[in-house]
Structures are given as C-alpha cells and as structure tokens.
Simulated scan of single mutants.
Amino acid sequence: MPLSHPVVVGVTVFQPDEAQSAALCRRVEADPRRTVVFDNGGLPEAAAARLIGDGALVLSEGRNIGVGGALDAIVRTASEAGARQVLLLDQDADFSAQQISALEAALGRLQGSGVPVALVGPRPEAAPGRKAPASPRRPYRSDHGSLAPVEYLATSGSLIDLEAYAVIGPFRSDFFIDGIDLEWCFRAWAAGYGCWMDTGTALPHRVGAGVIRSEILGIEMPRQPLFRMEVYLRNSVYAWRLSHVPRRWKLRQAAYLPLQILLYWADAGYRPNVLARLALGVLDGLRGRLGQPRGLP
C-alpha cells in the first residue's frame, strides 16, 4: 500500500491488556499515518484483525524477540515502504497525531539549519507513581530554540530519521530490552548525528511498577521485575567496553550501579537469590553474554 505520509508510526506490543489494545486501535483509526505494529506476544486476535482492517500492518515472529529486534523490524518495514522517518511508540504511550506533527516540524527546523539529526523526541515526564526516564543534556552543545541536545532519549516517542539510521546502524537486538536507546544514541553522536529533545512536547512514561526510593542514598529507580533489573545491569556493564560510549557515562555508572543493586536488593527483602541473580547480570555483562535473558516471561 503506497504511503500517504512520509512518517510511519511503529508500535511495539507485548501482552497488552484490554485497555491498551483498545487504545492502540483508536489511535490507528484517528491517525492518517501508516502504522506498523510488532507483536512480541499476546496481542489478541480480535485486536490484530481490527488493526489490519483499519490499514495497520501487524508483524510477528511468533515469539518474543525483544524490543531491539522489534524496533529494527519496524524500521526495515518503514524503509521498504518509502518512509523518510519513523515514530516509535510502546503500548503505553499516549501520544497524539498533533504531537507527532510537532516533532516533524522540529526535525525539519534542525535539518533546515544544517544540523545532522538522528532523532527528535518529546520531553519525558513521569506518569503518576512512576519515574521518568533520564535524558541528560549533551555537553558543549547549544540549544536550537526549544530543542535541547541530549545524550539519549527513550525510544518511545522518538522520531527517527531513516537516512541517519542507515548510517548509524540498527538497534542492538542482543541487548533485548534495556539500554537499547542509550547505546544507539551514543552511537549516533559518535557518527556525527545528534539526538534532540523538544522541550515543548511531553510524553508520560510508565516504566516499571512504581518507584524505589532511598533518602539515605539519594537515589530513586523504577521497580522492575528481577529479569529486567538483571538485564539492565548486564547491558550497562557490557557498555563499558564500547568505544562510542563516553567515559563520563562509564564513570557515572561505575559509581551508580552498586547503589542501585543495594537499593533493589533491600526492596526485595535482602533475599539471597535476588542478590545472586543481580550478580549474574553483572558477570554476564563482563563476559559479554547478551541475548535473551533468563527468567523471561
């Protein structure tokens, strides 16, 4: 089917509940842009049929291939369809067609000023009871009006330029779920393409199931399932060996990860098996053992 708009919307889903499936169907009905949905498992047949009937393309490999693999499948499909950009969302994202247009305009302003752009994304906000993803500013870079250069942005809500993607390369499918956006954005900056946050456009994020806080340690983090925390540690430690990841980030993580481990372990009741799994995640990162995590639902 020929595209009527240069932007394709890509949505990754995994075991969406009834409300999430219904919201996805409504957004496809309301947005004239072509939507590509990648089902990593659990999309109801009725919802898939409704999406297809409304013009969406539903992809699946019949198993959970992880977020990185799903994102790359969406991008390949969008590129083959002739799109110039792809807007990536997860199943929780409440992001309107008007907000996508705002990102399109922002990307156009940057490119019109001769700025090489990998992506433009919204300002992350915390949904009630959650923690917003970090988006630290890129040092030694100036703002372009309401657009701020950032080290990395969550993929959900990011408008990816496909010409830049072709140069930067695919998302890391072997990271599976955590740190994928961070690694790709650092790789983008190393290749000469910037990642920009539109401070005038916001997207609430629903990471994890609440927040773990410690006033003593002065940190807070999302409350994640054990397999997610293990993968986060694994990928963070593995990233220390990547030359395009800045030394400043590696040093920060070297100080921060032990505090996160302690906070997570305390929240889990200091159970020995939890600490053992966290230690395995760190060891996997040191040894370069990536791919599908243990304990995957």
Rank of each mutant, 00 (worst) to 15 (best):
F95G: 05
L89I: 00
A118L: 12
G208T: 09
L162K: 02
R271P: 05
Q85K: 15
L89M: 09
A48H: 08
N235K: 15
T155I: 11
A47P: 04
H5W: 10
W265N: 13
G108I: 03
G53H: 14
R187M: 13
F14A: 07
V120S: 04
A49T: 14
R63S: 11
T35V: 14
I160A: 00
P122L: 01
E125I: 06
L51W: 02
W196V: 04
G82N: 02
L259V: 06
S158T: 11
L51Q: 07
L110W: 04
A209C: 01
A97V: 06
S21A: 15
S142C: 09
L162S: 01
H205K: 01
C185S: 12
G53Y: 07
Q111D: 11
R34A: 15
V117K: 01
Y193F: 07
F95E: 03
L217S: 09
V274P: 10
Q20A: 14
P293A: 00
E80Q: 15
T201Y: 06
S243N: 12
F38C: 08
I261R: 14
P122H: 08
R138Q: 13
P116A: 01
I100C: 15
D161A: 10
S146V: 14
C185A: 08
G194H: 06
R234Y: 12
P258I: 06
P297W: 03
R287P: 13
E61C: 08
R248F: 02
R289T: 15
Y165A: 12
L159F: 00
V7H: 03
L290D: 03
A134W: 04
R213K: 12
R247H: 15
T35E: 05
I52V: 10
P32E: 02
Q85C: 14
H205W: 10
A70Q: 11
F175S: 11
R50S: 10
